[in-house]
Design a binder for these strands. Structure first.
Length: 504
RNA sequence: GAAUCGCUAGCUCAGUCGGUAGAGCACCGGACUUUUAAUCCGGGUGUCGGGGGUUCAAGUCCCCCGCGAUUCACCA
């Protein structure tokens, strides 16, 4: 089969056809294959060049500096016997100046004939600054490293179509340096989390993604199947139960930063797979976790150089200490209902009906469930400044220790920012008898049709029976933290390849 | 799950009352040794998301479907 036949595809648009044809001619006419190159001795990045030669004056050049660099040709402006191009790498973008006299006629012809926007090119040159003040690499040698046969998105408007941006993220990343910046910041934030946890002598561990019981959170799991074992398995919905087993196993302070999978709807705050950091400290409680949460988030913000963060037209000053409010206080403050005075379930439901929550009631809710309903409906969105919400009822907290002074409530907090939850933490329930009872309560809910109630994990109970020390634990939604610190409005803007429905 | 908006050239978009599919950039050919959204001359490259219907005639009107965005609902 000839190469022409291999090259042609009926779906190709005009530009791709031309580029494929050009590639073939480059191979036959010049005996040059742009896909055989393996290395290029890049000695300096474009950002480093910008830094080092910032003081160069217009029309000045530094012939002694030898710059070996590389990147992708973003635009090219040919003008007869000279040409300007914009070269971009992962750090920056800089102008190239090619002169026939400097590179020689043969090489200059090669440039004119064979080099296109999108191509990767290796450069040897020296810095100069044009009369208009643009820092430029005066090219002495170059090598075409790889050809692009597909055209880049438009240079001025870039790529804005959200669907293409998410489906073909590589094009988004090429066309929109801001997007690259968000993902660099995501990486810095995650590094910051790891650094902060390392400073607290917390060991990073890895636990199974695949398991036969998905528990530790209220969510529907993804099912999958293991062929050799001939069993149905689930993708994890939380890290919690395995990490607590490790504390039982005397691993000390542990954390995992990993992917969770929840089989739920997709919107601007939820992606089916998302990244969670969970940490467990023996001999600590939920108050210690509050201190840690605040430190983690403030350090993360600092790692990307931010003290004040903005999200959806709201602003938070991270120089301020985080606030604290109990669920009872919040509901009293924002909904005007004092649930400390409500001791009867039917009374609670009546109050809910008075507040137009009747449609949400099934009729069997406890006063604790109603309290939570009030919080979600009237308070959650008001918690703009970072605020620790405490005092969750036991009923909605199957893994938290009870408040000894108030056994219907727990030693738990959720951290809210911009009206959204970013962290969930508690003094871990370590009473195996109570834990079994809580799971059984969840099982009853599940049997009653609550698909998100937690499953009873016998081995986990077994672990607790072996003795879980007093432990403080916390989960932080990394994607949300990244959204809030970078200002990204949608979770899809902080996940490189968000879950998408196949197009056909 | 519902509502709204969107889907036209590689990209960003226009397309009137239903009457021969357009622009800018990109791309192709030519000129040009300091341009930078280079400029100048010439060239339009298309399954108008898919299917059906109405009509002499559909990018445009109607119906169904797909994908996406946003809001709401659901959900942590």
């Amino acid at each position: 089969m000839t190469q022409e036949i291999l090259l042609n595809s009926p779906e190709d648009n005009e530009i791709v056809k031309q580029r494929k044809d050009k590639l073939l001619r480059l191979k036959t006419e010049e005996n040059y294959d742009p896909f055989v190159n393996e290395t290029w001795p890049r000695e300096i990045t474009l950002a480093e060049i910008r830094n080092q030669f910032d003081n160069l004056q217009p029309e000045q050049e530094d012939q002694n500096a030898v710059l070996k660099t590389a990147g992708r040709i973003m635009t090219i402006r040919r003008q007869g016997k000279a040409a300007f191009a914009d070269l971009a790498d992962e750090t920056s973008r800089i102008q190239l100046y090619f002169q026939l006299n400097a590179v020689g006629e043969k090489n200059y012809d090669f440039l004119k004939k064979w080099v296109d926007t999108g191509d990767w090119i290796g450069i040897v040159g020296h810095p100069c600054r044009t009369r208009r003040g643009e820092l430029t690499i005066f090219v002495n040698e170059f090598k075409l490293l790889t050809k692009a046969i597909r055209p880049l998105p438009e240079k001025w408007h870039g790529l804005t179509d959200t669907e293409t941006r998410y489906r073909q993220r590589y094009l988004d990343l090429i066309a929109n340096p801001d997007v690259r910046e968000i993902f660099k910041q995501r990486s810095q934030i995650i590094s910051s989390f790891r650094n902060t946890l390392a400073q607290h002598n917390t060991l990073e561990v890895e636990t199974p993604v695949l398991s036969t019981i998905a528990s530790g959170a209220n969510a529907r799991p993804f099912k999958t199947f293991h062929n050799a074992l001939n069993i149905e398995m689930y993708l994890r919905i939380a890290l919690e139960l395995h990490l607590k087993r490790l504390v039982v196993g005397m691993m000390g302070r542990v954390y995992e930063l990993g992917r969770n999978f929840r089989n739920e709807g997709i919107d601007t705050m939820h992606n089916p797979e998302f990244t969670m950091m969970e940490v467990y400290w023996p001999y600590a409680d939920y108050n210690d976790m509050m201190t840690l949460a605040e430190e983690l988030i403030k350090n993360a913000a600092q790692s990307i150089g931010k003290n004040i963060i903005e999200w959806n037209d709201m602003q938070i000053d991270l120089n301020q200490p985080f606030e604290k409010i109990s669920m009872l206080e919040a509901v009293k403050k924002y909904a005007g209902v004092d649930f400390t005075q409500v001791n009867d379930d039917e009374q609670a439901r009546n109050i809910a009906r008075e507040h137009n929550l009747g449609a949400e009631l099934k009729g069997n809710e406890s006063r604790f469930a109603v309290l939570n309903m009030f919080f979600e409906n009237f308070c959650e969105e008001k918690l703009i400044k970072p605020t620790f919400l405490t005092g969750h009822p036991v009923e909605i907290s199957p893994l938290s220790k009870r408040d000894p002074d108030n056994p219907d409530y727990t030693h738990r907090f959720e951290l809210f920012m911009f009206g959204k939850e970013v962290a969930n933490a508690f003094s871990e329930l370590n009473d195996p008898i109570d834990q079994r009872a809580r799971f059984e309560d969840q099982m009853r809910k599940k049997e009653a049709g609550d698909e998100e109630a937690q499953s009873l994990d016998e081995d986990f109970i077994n672990a607790i029976e072996a003795g879980l020390p007093p432990t403080g634990g916390m989960g932080i939604g990394i994607d949300r933290v990244v959204m809030f610190l970078t200002g990204a409005r949608s979770i899809r803007d902080v996940i490189l390849f968000p879950t998408m429905k196949p197009k056909i």
